[in-house]
Amino acid sequence: MPRSSSAALPTAHVVLRILIVLNWLYGAAVLTLLTAMIVAEQWTFKALGITPSSGISSMITGLRLIAALGLLAVPLYHAIFKRLFAMVETVRGGDPFVAANADRLQAIARALLALQVLSMVIGGIAKAISTPQHPLHLDAGFSTSGWLAVILTFVLARVFTAGTLMREELEGTV
């Protein structure tokens, strides 16, 4: 096995573990922000630099909606990281071409699709509530690379499924 690939697997193992924890921390942070926006509305918006002006109520509602939608991303990312982690483990175990991995890749593709849709919805809301007084710059919306990743993952999942079936056939060949 080449040196680079032998180092890649333990690295991926550690990075994915860190990402799983970071994702939950992100979720906790967004949940705290959402709670603060409801419980301590004035204090939170003052801290965010949003001063009372016309159209502020729609912005507050929009920001709450964005935070709530942001929370939906947490289980989606968790599903991706968890499955990717399991796939890395099968590679480390020396048997990655199994039906379970094809199913995992399919589930990852679906989660990526949901994240892209979520990103577009959040981007749309941000655009709608952004005002010249309070411009909202969020890293959300349509992403060519994101959609390409979705298509690529769906295709890879199909390739993996076909490959797994071929391998099963080969295993039963005498």
């Binding site: 099963e168 056939e169 295993e171 039963g172 060949t173 005498v174």
Partner: peptide, 22 residues
């Protein structure tokens, strides 16, 4: 020159396919 395990698979009808060479 075929392993006993593979021949057993063939004998017991558990094989999915058989190569022309076999």
């Amino acid at each position: 020159d075929i392993t006993l395990a593979n021949l057993s698979i063939l004998k017991t009808g558990k094989a999915r396919a058989i190569r022309f060479s076999t």
